[in-house]
Every structure is written in C-alpha cells, then in structure tokens.
Computed example of a mutant assay.
Amino acid sequence: MKPKNIFLIAVALVVLAAVIYTLTATESPEDYIERIEDERERQFKFIRFNIDSPLSEEQKRSFKALSFYPIDPEYKVTARMVPVSNKKVRELPMTDGTTERYIEHSYAEFTLKGMPLRLLLLQDINEADKRNFFVAFADDTSARETYGGGRYINARQTGKNSITIDFNLAYNPYCAYNPDYACPLPPKENLLKVPIPAGEKNYDK
C-alpha cells in the first residue's frame, strides 16, 4: 500500500474515532457533580449580590446560603416527549391571582427510582428557542422540605423526541423569597404524588 494511502486511512480513522467519541462520550460523575455545584454557587451569588435579586437589601445583609438536597445523578433523567394533541394556550394561575400564558407542548414521560412519571412541558408563548421548556412541579416534599408553591426546572430538548429533566437543578420561584413577587403555580398535571428529594429546598427566612 502506498504511503499516501496509509496516511489518508490513518486520518480517516482519527476522524472516525473523534466522531464516535463525540457521539458516545458522557459526562463523568465527578464532572457532573462539579457542574451542579458551580451552578448552585452561581445561583447563590445572584440571590446574594445581583440588583435583580428577589431579596430586599435588608434580606441580603443576613443571607448566608441556599439550602439544597445532596446531588444525586439518578435524579437527572432522559424523558420521552409525547406531543399534546390539539396544542392550546394554558393560562397558569399566579400567586397573586393573575394568570400567565404558556403553550401546552408535550408530556415528558420517564422512570425515576423505578416509578413511571410524567410532566407537562410548557413553553412561553414568546420563547425564541423552541428547544427550551418550562417545568413547574410540586411533589410530596412541597410545603414541608421544599417551597409549598412548587419548584421550577428549565429543561432543554436533547433529541428529536427526548428531553433532559434534571431535578438536581430544580429551583425556587422568586415568591419563595419575597411575597411581593407573583409566580406561576404548577399545573394539576405536575402535582406529583411522590417525593423528589433533589434540587433546592425551602428558603429559610
């Protein structure tokens, strides 16, 4: 075989290996935990220092930390997206009695700790990136260990019919920190009858 052909084959094998690695490589548990910890630190700094924080200046002075469940990679799931037939606009009730409009897009169906679950995926009517979804949910920890009005997840579609739901990134709405804010309440479809001990806990005032 000519040296030139050997070189071309070698290049092709390197490219193929790179493609396979890109398609199959997954985040290590250590990298995943570090990423979640970084996100939690970013969240703390926003709440503590940002001008757009829901905390008052008086609250900021005494604010020391956010409270989270331990990071558990099992609470990051890949869900199957099942389209909602006859998509329509849902008016979610807000904590102040008003409503906010979202598009009922699809259901995320998945198994968590052996339990089959599903959540309604909503999309802001003004969302520019159609791969982004809003999940408002409550579970058996709500009003006990977590905020009674439910928690939120920003979810992103990862495949043609799949989406990643990471409960370790579940966060409190602004009204959990300050009742002067109005926040969407979870739709009835997302009132889970199981505990989800992942993500942010209730804010300790």
Results as ranks from 00 to 15, higher is better:
D124W: 11
S162M: 10
E74K: 13
I165S: 00
S142W: 05
G149N: 06
P73E: 09
A138N: 09
I163Q: 01
V89F: 06
L169Q: 14
Y147F: 15
D124L: 14
N132H: 12
T78A: 11
M94N: 14
L112N: 04
Y69T: 04
P116Y: 08
F63R: 03
L119Q: 04
T141K: 05
Y152L: 15
I71A: 07
G149Q: 02
S67A: 11
D124H: 13
R90K: 13
L66F: 04
M81G: 01
G148V: 05
Y102F: 15
M94S: 03
Q157A: 12
F68N: 02
A65Y: 12
T78Y: 06
M115S: 09
T141D: 10
K60L: 07
T158M: 07
L119C: 07
A138G: 13
I153A: 04
P70E: 08
Y171F: 15
P70Q: 09
K60Y: 08
K113N: 14
L66V: 02
D139N: 11
R118V: 04
F134P: 02
S162G: 07
G148W: 06
L120D: 00
F137Y: 15
G159E: 13
S85R: 12
L92R: 03
I165Q: 00
K60W: 10
I71Y: 06
Q157G: 07
L117D: 01
L121V: 01
A108H: 05
S142L: 10
N86L: 11
F134S: 13
F167I: 05
N154R: 13
Q123D: 07
E74P: 05
A143V: 05
V135Q: 00
T111C: 06
G150N: 01
F137W: 04
T99E: 13
F110R: 04
V84F: 00
T95V: 00
A65I: 09
K130A: 14
R156Y: 11
N86G: 14
S142Q: 09
K60P: 05
V82Y: 07
L92Q: 03
D166R: 05
K87V: 10
G149M: 03
M81A: 04
V84K: 00
G150C: 05
E127L: 06
K76D: 05
E109Y: 09
K88Y: 12
F63G: 02
A136T: 08
A128Q: 14
K113R: 14
D139C: 10
Y152V: 01
L66T: 03
